[in-house]
Measured scan of single mutants.
Amino acid sequence: RNRTTFTSYQLEELEKVFQKTHYPDVYAREQLAMRTDLTEARVQVWFQNRRAKWRK
């Protein structure tokens, strides 16, 4: 699989949710996936990576 390149809009939306919660539930991830036109799996992985970056 190729690396996903996120648009500025997608990143904005993802970051907005990340500010509210670092662990969005499956419903929140589904909503976000629909809004950003990404798969729920991509959203889930983005949050995993974002949490790792945040911990550093």
Rank of each mutant, 00 (worst) to 15 (best):
Arg51Asn: 06
Tyr23Glu: 07
Tyr23Met: 04
Tyr27Lys: 15
Pro24Tyr: 03
Val45Pro: 01
Gln31Arg: 11
Val17Asn: 04
Ala33Trp: 04
Thr7Tyr: 07
Glu40His: 10
Gln48Ala: 14
Leu38Gln: 03
Thr21Met: 05
Arg51His: 01
Arg42Val: 14
Leu14Tyr: 00
Arg3Trp: 12
Arg29Ile: 15
Val45Thr: 13
Ala52Arg: 08
Glu40Arg: 08
Arg3Asp: 15
Thr7Asn: 09
Trp46Ile: 02
Leu38Asn: 02
Asp25Ala: 04
Asp25Ser: 12
Val45Glu: 14
Arg51Thr: 02
Trp46His: 00
Ala52Thr: 11
Asn49His: 14
Arg50Cys: 03
Gln44Val: 11
Thr36Trp: 05
Lys20Gly: 07
Tyr9Trp: 07
Val26Thr: 08
Asp37Ser: 11
Val17His: 08
Phe6His: 07
Arg42Gln: 15
Lys20Asp: 10
Thr5Ile: 11
Ser8Leu: 09
Phe18Ala: 00
Ala33Asn: 01
Phe47Met: 09
Trp46Glu: 02
Leu14Lys: 00
Asp37Trp: 05
Arg1Lys: 14
Leu32Asp: 01
Thr21His: 14
Arg50Val: 02
Asn49Asp: 10
Asp37Val: 07
Ser8Met: 09
Ala28Trp: 04
Leu32Lys: 00
Arg42Met: 15
Arg55Tyr: 13
Ala52Cys: 13
Gln44Glu: 15
Asp25Trp: 00
Val45Gln: 10
Met34Gly: 12
Gln10Val: 03
Arg50Met: 05
Gln19Glu: 13
Phe18Tyr: 08
Glu12His: 13
Glu15His: 02
Leu32Ala: 03
Leu14Ile: 01
Val17Gly: 07
Arg51Ser: 02
Glu13Ser: 05
Val43Ala: 02
Arg1Leu: 07
Phe47Asn: 01
Thr36Ser: 07
Leu38Glu: 02
Lys53Cys: 11
Tyr27Leu: 14
Asp25Gln: 03
Met34Arg: 15
Leu11Ser: 08
Lys56Ile: 07
Trp54Ser: 11
Met34Lys: 14
Asp37Cys: 09
Tyr23Gln: 04
Gln48Tyr: 08
Pro24Gly: 01
Asn49Pro: 02
Thr36Leu: 13
His22Ile: 11
Trp46Thr: 00
Tyr9Pro: 03
Asp25Cys: 05
Thr21Gly: 05
